[in-house]
Amino acid sequence: MNAGLFSRTIAVVVALLLAAPTIVIAATSFTSGVIITFPPKGFSMRWYEEIFGDRAWRDAFVTSFTTGILAAVIAMVIGTLLAFMAARGRLVPRSLVATLAMTPMIVPLVVAGIGFYMAYVHTSLYNHITSLALAHAMLGVPFCFLNVLAALTAVDPRVEEAASICGAGKLTVIATVTVPLVLPSAVAGGLFAFVTSWDEVVVATLLATPTLRTLPILFLSQLREGLEPSTSAAATVITLLTIVLLVIAGLLSRRQRGRST
């Protein structure tokens, strides 16, 4: 049963609206002119050369990248441990663990951001990349938790039992059977956490200082000053990295699903 012509028309128009912003930004970044025009005038890489040569963009890139990696690793470890605790621990009720792991997803970013700001401002962590990484890690925990929990529920317990029966000790079973089985999902969750940090602007605004600026912060300040093709170039670079990482995460999750069924 195919959809009718009317709904198909709406769908195509909406699809164009969904994709238009990204396409316009990518196209305008290659303009050889000095203002943003669409379709772009000529073709040049000058705006890419400009942002890669600009110290502010480079510093922000390094800060964002480091924050993202730190946040992803922390979120991955915490999310994975919580998922195991929810799926297999017997002491703490599963719903309690799940609530704790999922709360960062429900709380509006600006509310969490004020909390982070007040908690860190008087500590030595403030104005240091760790504060931002820790805050961003919390936002990434739900992704890692959900991914690993889904993988764990798909793991056949008999596989682990088989290993035990064959004489493997508890730790050997975990290290050689369980962990490899959920690792792709944990890594996929980690990539989601990285992208969450990489794109995040609300919490970052509240924790930012003149010496601690991520790419989205720099981007936002440019956006308020005026629009330039260099902003388009930066946006394209940021989006490109996001897409590459999320495609990898998607492939990892798919591989996991393929294996468990």
């Binding site: 969904l18 994709a19 912003p21 990204t22 305008t28 990489w198 981007f219 629009l227 946006a235």
Partner: peptide, 19 residues
Amino acid sequence: ALMVSFWTSLLIRTFAWQV
């Protein structure tokens, strides 16, 4: 189309709408 928009950050899409 859905994924392209999903994968572009909200901030960048805000900028794009401004453009």
